[in-house]
């Protein structure tokens, strides 16, 4: 039916997940770290939708799970931004290597 192999979609999701993981581990600005986490969640959603179409038993359930994942990701972004702004009000920084209050 289709000539795009299922591993191509999975490889794309893997590459995006690795980019998001590297960004979340190395970036200094906390907003960019949050965006990288969103990118990782998007890669997982690609996997869910791929298996929803090309998996051993295709059904709509994968797309429904991706919808739930998007809803939780939106809630996580809002709460993460709120924590970031509260932290910025106390410490006047958004750099992640200066948020080391627990070390002292």
């Amino acid at each position: 039916m289709s000539n795009i192999p299922v591993s191509a979609f999975l490889a794309l999701a893997l590459i995006l997940f690795c980019i998001g993981l590297y960004g979340a581990l190395t970036k200094r600005n906390t907003v960019i770290v949050l965006i990288s986490i969103e990118l990782m969640l998007n890669a997982v959603n690609i996997n869910l939708v791929t298996f929803s179409k090309y998996g051993p038993a295709p059904s709509i359930n994968g797309q429904v799970f991706a919808l739930f994942a998007i809803a939780v990701a939106a809630a996580e972004a809002a709460v993460g931004l709120a924590i970031l702004i509260a932290l910025y009000r106390n410490r006047k920084t958004v750099n992640i290597d200066e948020m080391n209050q627990l070390k002292h």
Binding site: P5, V6, S7, A11, L14, Y54, G55, P56, A57
Partner: peptide
Amino acid sequence: IYDLDFAS
């Protein structure tokens, strides 16, 4: 995943 394929 590189040779994953399902007979779906």
